[in-house]
Simulated scan of single mutants.
Amino acid sequence: MPDDLAERIRQAIGEDPNIGEIRMFGGICFTLNGNMMVGTMKDGTLLARVGEGQEAEALSKPGATRMNFTGREMKGFIIVAADELSDDALKRWIAMASRFVGAMPAKKPGAKKKK
């Protein structure tokens, strides 16, 4: 299931040199300028990074819940149920995530935060 969703995301995004892919959370994470944007989860759900400013709007959409990773909720990260991911809905989620992530500074490849 995650592979089917990943292919649908690829088709929705199209050819963009600023988009990358990495394996994460048992699925594939799509990055924009090196920043996590959307991803597939192993159960076929979508992970969308919408930021805290768009979170209330995102949570009002069908099938949307805040990501809960190992018992800790992650603000600004939304999980969308697989059965709520029509092609149009998927495009809207990608657009919402892109608005947030696109405003972030680009990450340099291999750069790690200093503590």
Rank of each mutant, 00 (worst) to 15 (best):
L59F: 14
G53A: 13
R92F: 08
A111Q: 14
K113M: 09
M24P: 01
D87C: 04
A58V: 13
A95C: 05
G27M: 08
G71Q: 05
G27W: 08
V50A: 07
I19R: 05
K107F: 04
D4Y: 07
S60I: 12
K91E: 08
E73Y: 03
L85Q: 05
L46S: 02
V101R: 00
A64D: 06
D83R: 03
I28F: 07
G102T: 11
K42T: 14
V80T: 09
A56V: 15
A103K: 04
L32C: 04
A58Y: 14
K61M: 13
A97G: 08
K113T: 13
A95G: 05
L90E: 01
G39S: 08
K75N: 11
V50R: 04
D43H: 12
E57T: 15
D83K: 05
P2M: 09
D3L: 11
D83Q: 09
I28Q: 03
E73M: 02
E21D: 00
M37G: 00
A106W: 11
K75A: 12
I28H: 01
M96K: 06
K112C: 05
A97V: 10
A95E: 06
K75C: 09
N18T: 15
T65H: 14
G53K: 06
G71R: 09
L32K: 03
W93F: 02
S60A: 10
M96V: 12
E15Y: 14
A82F: 08
M104R: 01
M1I: 15
K115M: 11
A106Y: 11
L5M: 03
E57R: 15
L5F: 03
L5N: 00
N35Y: 00
D43M: 11
T70R: 15
A97N: 04
K75Q: 13
F100Q: 02
L32M: 03
A89Y: 04
S86V: 10
I19W: 06
F100A: 02
K115R: 15
D43R: 15
T31C: 03
G14V: 13
K75M: 12
I28W: 05
R66Q: 11
A6L: 02
R72L: 02
A82R: 07
D4T: 13
L5C: 00
M96F: 09
R49F: 01
F25R: 09
M41K: 14
K75F: 10
E7H: 11
A64C: 09
A81P: 05
L90S: 06
K112A: 06
I22M: 05
M1T: 14
R23V: 12
G71L: 04
G63M: 10
T70E: 11
L32P: 02
P62E: 10
A81W: 06
Q11D: 07
R92P: 04
R8I: 15
T40S: 08
N18K: 14
G26Y: 12
N33P: 06
G63T: 15
K108F: 09
A81M: 04
F77A: 01
A103C: 02
S98L: 07
L46P: 00
N68G: 07
D87I: 06
I78T: 13
L46V: 12
T65W: 12
T70L: 14
R99D: 12
R49D: 04
L46G: 01
K61E: 10
G63Q: 10
G71N: 06
R66E: 08
K112V: 09
A103Q: 04
V50G: 05
A89H: 02
G20K: 00
M1P: 07
